[in-house]
């Protein structure tokens, strides 16, 4: 096994180009589990932990660029006010020890449908920047990034550079169901983002399909009712029945299976409830 440790982004991309099978490692919270459990023996480990460019975030022209190496702990501490949905999700990731090491970029790289950062990023309409030495940078909208269970849109020579998303322009919420009150992998999860300036509702579903999903019908339905009834202006909450219907549409968008963490029907049911509750909170938050 070879261990590569580039210290700049350019070196990192060159390394990935030279060794397309290299497994990138950042906080190690996914990769090392597979190594320790004897599930994975890559020929090359590519440590991105020394790449300074990945560890920064910046605000630029109304958008935030969050480097792929920013840890969950920093998301909570430094970006919580601007990205409340992502910060809520980050707070549910593993444990303090995991949040100190795990990164949003790592979550994207692993592309597990259970990854906690996917739903809030989908809900907020994030765009991911990936890059290769040969072709430079390109941007992939979050909803086009997830191709299958633990499969994403990265080419073999590409690495994830950053996440672009706008600071919240309305309430954002995240909820996750698991049978333990801490340190639990999502049996299913849901994120909602209210954008009061664009007058849209965003959604993200975790652990209830082969990939993280969105619920476009639910988004359009709720935004439509709010617009039609003048609730953007009034700040009033939609009727209970509307929020109920939103929850049901969220559940309809899921494609869950039965597995060791939950049944498909429970996942749908939980999404109905979480959809209704989180939408209520998010609409209340941002008034």
């Amino acid at each position: 096994m070879e261990f590569l440790q580039p210290s700049t982004w350019e070196e990192a991309l060159a390394a990935k180009a030279a060794f397309p099978d290299a497994v990138p490692i950042q906080g190690g919270t996914d990769v090392m589990v597979e190594m320790n459990f004897d599930r994975r023996r890559p020929d090359v480990l590519l440590d991105l932990g020394r790449v300074r460019e990945l560890a920064d975030w910046a605000s630029d022209a109304g958008s935030l660029r969050v480097g792929a190496g920013v840890t969950y702990a920093r998301v909570i501490a430094e970006l919580g006010a601007m990205l409340p949905g992502l910060a809520l999700a980050a707070r549910t990731v593993g444990s303090p020890q995991i949040r100190n090491r795990g990164t949003v970029g790592g979550n994207l790289g692993a592309a597990s449908p259970a990854g906690d950062s996917h739903p809030p990023l989908l809900a907020a309409g994030a765009v991911y920047e990936v890059a290769s030495a040969a072709r430079g940078a390109r941007r992939i909208p979050a909803h086009e990034f997830y191709l299958g269970p633990k499969r994403n849109a990265l080419e073999p020579d590409e690495l994830i550079a950053a996440i672009y998303l706008a600071p919240a322009a309305g309430g954002q919420q995240f909820a996750k169901v698991g049978t333990r009150n801490a340190m639990v992998i999502a049996a299913c999860s849901f994120a909602v983002a209210v954008d009061r300036s664009a007058r849209t509702i965003g959604t993200g579903i975790g652990s209830a399909g082969p990939t993280p999903l969105q619920a476009p019908d639910a988004e359009r339905y709720l935004a439509g009712v709010i617009t039609d009834e003048g609730l953007w202006e009034s700040g009033r909450l939609p009727d209970e029945a509307v929020l109920e219907r939103f929850g049901a549409l969220v559940a309809d968008a899921a494609r869950p299976i039965d597995d060791v963490r939950a049944t498909a029907s429970y996942r749908r049911h939980a999404l109905t409830v979480m959809g209704r509750r989180t939408a209520t909170w998010a609409l209340r938050d941002g008034r």
Partner: peptide, 10 residues
């Protein structure tokens, strides 16, 4: 609350 940090109920 049930769910703890997972923010499932207020």
């Amino acid at each position: 609350l049930p769910g703890g940090t997972s923010n499932t109920t207020h």
